[in-house]
């Protein structure tokens, strides 16, 4: 198991390298320049100067090498700095191109905790509620409980968050006055955005749980467990759920990475200073450094979550062999 985790950490390095390099090159190839996106067009000389300042001049491979930190950057006169290696490998996330006086590292350090807290809360709600709903629906198959749970799930998927978010605000903040409209601060600020973010995920998890549980419930070992005289609860939670939850666990890897790095829509609706807004806008502004940093964070989370998922497989179904 230790060797398995160690190998995975080594591969994390390569996955990160590929993901960041590809993102960087694609974004540099995209039409538009980070220095020329507003109405006021810069002169070609000014753009060239800015590109040189941020080490974005020259051929693409060279730009990328300097960003990663395997090639020397230009020497700078003021403040005097020699040509040196200073990229991601050295822990330098570069300055932000859109907000010139802020570094990407600083920006991520400020916004990631907010998005991650919100995402973790939403993930917890989604997993608990989704698995519970799915189990209930599977056990009461073809009853009104099943129909109601699945109908609710479909409604939650087909109504986008930019509609559910404002609707929740309208009901719980403006009409009832129970919760704050938006902003960041206490636990009360977390409830509505977490619920909005969790909504579609609950539906996904409930549908996956239901179908997988139905399949496991039909297997022979469940009958054996019942024949042994185990209680309904024990059969369900110790025997059926442990196998039936596998597809949900697979789905949780990508879901967690996506949720923890924030959502533009949720952040806009509840005016939260999270990461999702910067992530999307970094692409629109062609801000390669901010985008590269965000991708690095997202990619790390994704790989780590998928590692947890694989370890969870082994724990849930000991027959599974990992490498």
């Amino acid at each position: 198991m230790f060797g398995f985790i160690a190998r995975r950490c080594v591969s994390l390095f390569f996955v990160l390298l590929f993901a960041v390099t590809l993102t960087f090159c694609l974004l540099r190839k995209a039409p538009g320049s980070p220095f020329n996106l507003n109405e006021k067009q810069n002169t070609p000389e000014a753009v060239a100067k800015a590109e040189r300042k941020f080490n974005l001049d020259g051929p693409l491979w060279w730009q990328c090498a300097r960003y990663i930190g395997v090639a020397r950057k230009h020497a700078v006169e003021s403040p005097p700095a020699p040509a040196q290696f200073s990229g991601l490998l050295q822990g330098d996330f570069q300055p932000c191109l859109k907000y010139k006086d802020r570094g990407v590292g600083e920006l991520l350090a400020q916004t990631l905790p907010i998005s991650a807290t919100l995402g973790a809360a939403a993930l917890l709600i989604a997993t608990l509620a989704g698995v519970w709903l799915g189990c209930v629906a599977a056990l009461r198959r073809h009853t009104w409980v099943d129909a109601a749970a699945m109908f609710g799930a479909l409604a939650a998927i087909s109504i986008p968050t930019f509609v559910t978010g404002p609707a929740l605000v309208l009901i719980f903040s403006l009409k009832l006055g129970w919760l704050p409209v938006g902003g960041w601060g206490g636990l009360a600020n977390l409830i509505l955005p977490a619920l909005t973010l969790a909504g579609p995920a609950i539906a996904y998890i409930a549908r996956l749980t239901r179908t997988s549980m139905l399949e496991v419930l039909a297997q022979d070992f469940v009958r054996t467990a019942h024949a042994k005289g185990l209680s309904e609860q024990r059969v369900l939670y110790r025997h059926v759920l442990k196998v039936g939850i596998l597809p949900v666990v697979s789905f949780l890897g990508p879901l967690a990475a996506g949720m923890l790095t924030g959502s533009l829509v949720i952040e806009k609706v509840f005016s939260l200073p999270g990461m999702g807004d910067f992530f999307v806008n970094s692409v629109l502004n062609r801000d390669v450094f901010l985008c590269g940093g965000s991708v690095a964070v997202y990619c790390t989370l994704l790989v780590v979550m998928n590692l947890f998922v694989d370890i969870a497989y082994k724990w849930l179904d000991p027959r599974i062999r990992l490498q």
């Binding site: 996955v15 590809l22 974004l27 991708v295 997202y298």
Partner: peptide, 17 residues
């Protein structure tokens, strides 16, 4: 790991390019 790399590239960039 290939799936993870593809998953990490923002889909917005892919669509723009």
């Amino acid at each position: 790991r290939i799936v993870e790399v593809l998953h990490s590239i923002p889909r917005l960039i892919i669509v723009i390019v």
